[in-house]
Every structure is written in C-alpha cells, then in structure tokens.
Design a protein around this nucleic acid. Structure first.
Lengths: 219, 219
DNA sequence: CACACAATGAACCGCATGGTTCATTGCGAC
DNA sequence: GTCGCAATGAACCATGCGGTTCATTGTGTG
C-alpha cells in the first residue's frame, strides 16, 4: 500500500462549511425574486438553485417541496411589509395631515415594493389558498389598519371627519388605489398610454389619490 | 375475396363532419376558462383538449402554440368586454346621474366578468408582453373612456364639475376601485375578513365607490 | 369520378422539471 | 477519538408536457 489514499475512484467532493440559517435565507431571497417574476408554476426550482450559493438538493431538504417554499416566501414577504408599515409615526399630526401622510406613504410604499405586490397578485390568482394554509398571516396584525383606526377616531372626535367612517372600508379604498397603480401598470399603460406612469404622472396620481381619499372622509 | 373490407388491420377511425369555425370557437371558449383558472404556465393543453369536443392535435393546428392561443383568448376577451361597455346609454342623463350610473355599472360589470379580470391579472403578471404583441388591442377604442369624456365635458360646461378633470385619470381611479374589488378579494378577505364580500358588503362598497368618485369631481 | 387541399385521429417524441437516492462530510457531545 | 446526526454533493429518475409525424377522411371544383 502507498501512503496515497487507497482509492482514486472516489470523486472529489469539495469541502464546505455549515451555516444552515444563511443557506435558508439565501434560498428564500432568490426564491422570492423568482416567484415574483414568474409565478408559482412559472418559477423553476432549477433556476432558483442556480442563483443560489447552494444546490437544488438543499432547497428540498429545507423546504420540502415547491409549494411549501412558495408559502414561506409569501409569509416572509407579508411580515416584512408589515414591519415597514410600523415605521410610520403619525400620532403627533392632526388627523387630516396624518391621513394625508398615511395615504401618500402607502402609495409610495407600494411602488417601492413591486415584488410584494406581484406576490400578492400571484396569490390572488391562486385564490389565496396558500395564504389560508399559513398560520402566521392573520388579520389584526395589520399596522396600516390600526393606524388608520386611530386617525379616524381622532378626526371624528374633532368633528373634522364624517361620523361612522368604517376603517376597514377606507383601508380597502386606499389599498385599491395604491395597489392597482403598481399591479395594473403593464396593461393599463399599453391600452391607455403611459402618461400616468411617468414621474410627473405618478406625482399627479399620488396627489389625486390623497385628495380623493381625504375628500371622502371630510365632514 | 369476400364483400367485407379487404383489411381489418386498419383501425377504426370514426367519421366526422367539418366545421372549422365551431371547432375554433369551442377551443377558445375552453381555453379561456382554463387560462383564467390557472394562468399561462399553469394551464395544461391536455386539459383544454379534454374539455373540448376536439383534440389536442387541432389546438396546435389552429392556434400554432400555447402562447398564441393565450394571446387570442386575451384579444377575444378584450373585444367582448368592450362590446359590453358600449351597451350603456347615458347621453340622456344629467352629468351627475350619468357618472353615477357609469361607476355603478363598472363596479357590477367587473364583478360579473371575473374571468376577464383574471385574464388581465395574469397578463399583468406577464408584464403585458402578449398585449403588446397584439395588434387589435389599442387605446382609443375603449368605450368606457369615451363615455366618461362626454360626461365630463357636459358636467364641466354646466359648472357642476371642477374644471380640468382629466378623463384618463378619472377612468384610472374608477378602474382601480372596481378592479381591485374582484382581483384582490381572496387575499383581502383572508387577511381582513370577508365582511366586504358579502352581498350587503358589496352593496355598501358600490355605494361608497360611487360617492367617492362623484365626490372627487364635484365643484 | 378524380384531384387537391383542408380537417382530423392516433400514436409518438424529446426533454424539462419536480423530486429522490445514496454515499460523504462537518461538527458538537461525551 | 468516536459516535451520531445534521448538512451536503452528484447523479439519477419518472413522468408530465408542449409539440410533431404520418396517414386518413371530408369536401368543394373541374
């Protein structure tokens, strides 16, 4: 026997370090972009793996299967967006100004988080079944609605706002306008021209959305 | 030789009648439902074929490939919806009432055409590339915007409306509210409860949307 | 009828894709 | 050190899926 390894038929298997959390986070990061880009059935595990520092093997090791990976991506995205909404401090402003800020922020925030918007679009295409399967995503922990409620309460107390404005319904209207702006940009601009999607158009739109929403609650 | 056919190795190939237009229409009908249900990559040609009176073979014969079939489905859907919008007769109404009717109609119309909404969502997921490839879908032939323009002109002339309301931008707001109502129902109702999706909730929402839009243009 | 061409049926094909197997390596506990 | 389990790599697999081939049948035209 020589001092060399007995067998040279053993293929070279590179060495590696263990860092499960980083690997999982890396996979989630890449998967999120891919799912947002191509949808659940359109995304390719292969493609996700290649953009990762790890392998296809590990995706299934940590996330079981494609649907589960998608669900975890969705959950993470919801959590992050909620986190972002919490950052707003509106308590010190008078109700009208607070509402103005909230709407303007939502408009800008949605624009800046296109991936999240697209994930929500995709989930709606799937009729929300993966959201249902998720334990962590539930009502009540939506900072946006809570802040809105607080503003409405103060505004109504000061008789600046109409009485009996429903926070949930108002939130729905704000969401609709801000969400649609991002979600339907491609088809809308192709059918009607992209005037509203230029920088100037978006500024005008944001102002219009703010005015429309604020106008709808003023006494 | 007997009087029977010389060869019984020839497999039985059932007889058939020719009716290309009906076959094409049948394929489009089924394909539309399937694409609306599962998206472009999610839909299965196989599945479409099985729900058709014809075969997979004929789908490729008439429509070349999956993407082209999808594009034709999209075009047909746009044409039909525009046709539906034309039916509205608002010229005889005073501007405020005409706008009210237009918004209420749009709200109801979108609700009633979920397949179309879903196709548009899907096309937005694909960033509108198939709409771009389509010759037949272009701005200008949108009856909804033309009607809206006419109403605005009359309303402004009578000094009922603010001056300088942009028809396109107003149409955008109406679309946003009515589209979102259908498109985001699954995720919205799962996160915030489905109060707004009940019959009563939808009635309240429709009224709210009408009031919000009309309120935003009144002088 | 004969011919040309459109319409159709049945079987087939290549390959991309989600998922698995099996053996190997890292590393903390004792 | 060594034992045990978590983490990993490489190759593999079954099959679903978009698309095609080839031969056959319908039908209008002369």
């Amino acid at each position: 026997m020589t001092s060399k390894p007995a067998s040279n038929s053993v293929k070279n298997r590179g060495s590696w370090k263990q860092n499960p959390d980083a690997v999982k986070a890396d996979i989630l990061r890449v998967a999120r972009a891919e799912f947002a880009d191509h949808g659940l059935s359109g995304a390719r595990i292969q493609e996700i793996a290649e953009k990762t520092k790890t392998s296809k093997r590990m995706i299934f090791y940590y996330f079981k299967d494609k649907e589960n990976l998608y669900r975890e991506v969705l959950e993470q995205a919801y959590r992050e967006v909620r986190q972002g909404e919490k950052a707003l401090a509106l308590d010190s402003l008078d109700p009208v100004e607070a509402l103005t800020q909230l709407v303007a922020f939502t408009f800008t925030h949605h624009r800046a988080n296109e991936d999240f918007i697209r994930l929500v679009m995709i989930e709606n295409i799937h009729r929300g079944v993966h959201l249902s399967a998720s334990e962590t995503i539930r009502a009540g922990n939506s900072p946006a609605v809570e802040q809105l409620s607080a503003i409405l309460e103060r505004g109504t107390a000061q008789k600046l706002f109409k009485p009996d404005i429903a926070a949930q319904q108002l939130h729905w209207k704000i969401s609709a306008l801000c969400f649609f702006n991002v979600s339907n940009e491609p088809t809308f601009s192709r059918v009607f021209g992209n005037d509203l999607m230029t920088e100037a158009g978006q500024a005008a739109l944001r102002q219009d959305v703010v005015d429309t929403i604020v106008g709808s609650v003023l006494a």
